[in-house]
C-alpha cells in the first residue's frame, strides 16, 4: 500500500490521536520549558528568559534546608506505610466481594465502597475533624463517655499516622478493587468446580486458584506503586495534617506549595520539583527493570 493510500484509509485513526497528543505536548512537554527556572534567579518581571542564570546555587540552598530532608523523609515514610496498608486492602476486599454469592448484595457493597473515592479531600478533612477530634470528636465523645481518657487521633504523631493511613484506605480501597475484580473475571470458572470436586474448601480455593490468578496483576501494581514512592498527592497530607503533627505531615508537595506559591520563591520550588522528577524517573526505570526480570513484562 502506498503512503497515500495508507493515509486515505487510516486518517481517521490519526485524527483521533491528535487530541491526546496535543494534551501531552501542551500539558506534559510544554511546561518543561520552565525547568530552567531551577537554574535561574527567577524574577517576576523579567520572566524566564530575562532572569539571570545562577547555576546550581538554588540546589545548594535547597539541599541545605532542614525542612527539605524532613519532607523528603516524610514523603517516603508515608508512601511506604501507605503501600503496606493501602496496597493489600483492595486485594482483600476484591477477593471478599468475589466470594459473595448474592448478586444484589455484591453490587450494593461495591457501590458503597466506591463512594468515598468521589468525595473531595477537603470535605473528608472536615469529616475527619468532626469524627476524630480530641475535644468533641464523635469517637472521643464515646470514649470519654465511658470514663476513659480521650485519644488524640489527630494531634499525637503516631496516632495521627494511623488515622492518616486508615482514612486513606477508607477513601481509596473500594475504588482500587475494580482492577482486581476485572482480573478475577479472567480466571477459568472450571478450576473452581474441579477444586470443589476434589474437596477443596473456600480458603483452599482462594489460596490455590484466586491468588495465583491475580499474581501478575499484583506484581504489576506493586512495581508501579514503587515507582511513585517519591511523589505524593498534595491534598491528603495538607488537609489531614496539622501543626501538632507537622513532623510527620509535612511532605514534598506541601513544601513546594509553601515555598513556591505562598512565599513566591519559584526557583526553590522548581528545584524541588525537578529533584522529584529525576528521582521519580530513576524509580520508574528501576521498577521497569525489575518488572522485566520478574514478570517478563515491561513498559519500555
Amino acid at each position: 500500500m502506498s503512503m497515500n493510500a495508507y493515509f486515505r484509509r487510516y486518517w481517521q485513526l490519526y485524527a483521533l490521536l491528535v487530541l491526546p497528543l496535543a494534551y501531552f505536548i501542551i500539558f506534559k512537554y510544554g511546561p518543561m520549558y520552565g525547568i530552567q527556572i531551577a537554574f535561574k534567579d527567577f524574577n517576576f518581571f523579567q520572566g524566564i528568559g530575562g532572569s539571570e542564570w545562577i547555576g546550581f546555587e538554588a540546589f545548594k540552598e535547597v539541599f541545605g534546608m532542614k525542612d527539605f530532608y524532613l519532607t523528603l523523609r516524610n514523603t517516603l515514610m508515608l508512601n511506604f506505610l501507605d503501600l503496606l496498608v493501602s496496597f493489600p486492602a483492595p486485594l482483600i476486599m476484591a477477593i471478599m466481594l468475589y466470594e459473595l454469592k448474592s448478586a444484589w448484595f455484591k453490587k450494593l457493597s461495591q457501590t458503597i465502597l466506591y463512594i468515598p473515592h468521589f468525595i473531595s479531600w477537603v470535605i473528608i478533612g472536615g469529616i475527619v475533624y468532626q469524627v476524630f477530634g480530641t475535644q468533641s470528636g464523635m469517637i472521643n465523645n464515646v470514649i470519654t463517655g465511658l470514663g476513659l481518657e480521650a485519644i488524640p487521633f489527630l494531634t499525637d504523631k503516631s496516632a495521627w499516622l494511623v488515622t492518616y493511613l486508615l482514612v486513606g484506605v477508607w477513601q481509596s480501597a473500594g475504588w482500587g478493587t475494580i482492577i482486581y475484580l476485572a482480573a478475577l473475571t479472567g480466571i477459568n470458572k472450571e478450576l473452581f468446580e474441579a477444586a470443589g470436586i476434589d474437596g477443596a474448601g473456600r480458603l483452599k480455593k482462594i489460596w490455590h486458584i484466586t491468588l495465583p490468578g491475580l499474581k501478575p496483576t499484583i506484581v504489576m501494581l506493586l512495581i508501579m506503586n514503587l515507582g511513585h514512592m517519591i511523589s505524593i498527592g498534595f491534598e491528603r497530607p495538607y488537609v489531614i495534617g496539622n501543626l501538632a503533627v507537622r513532623d510527620y505531615s509535612e511532605v514534598l508537595s506541601t513544601f513546594v506549595y509553601r515555598i513556591g506559591l505562598e512565599s513566591g520563591q519559584y526557583t526553590l520550588a522548581t528545584v524541588v520539583g525537578l529533584f522529584q522528577a529525576v528521582v521519580g524517573l530513576v524509580f520508574v526505570l528501576g521498577a521497569n527493570y525489575a518488572s522485566k526480570k520478574l514478570t517478563d513484562e515491561s513498559i519500555l
Binding site: 520549558y33 481509596s172 482500587g176 505524593i232 498534595f234 491534598e235 520539583g273 522528577a277
Partner: peptide, 30 residues
C-alpha cells in the same frame, strides 16, 4: 513539580484527582 503527576500508576486510579491541585498550580505557574 513534575513528580506530582500521579501517585499510583494504575489507569483510572485515585491518584490523579488528588494531585490535581498541585498539578494545576504547577502548570499555571510554569
Amino acid at each position: 513539580m513534575f513528580g506530582n503527576k500521579r501517585r499510583n500508576g494504575i489507569p483510572g486510579s485515585n491518584g490523579s484527582k488528588k494531585s490535581l491541585v498541585v498539578l494545576a498550580t504547577a502548570c499555571s505557574l510554569l
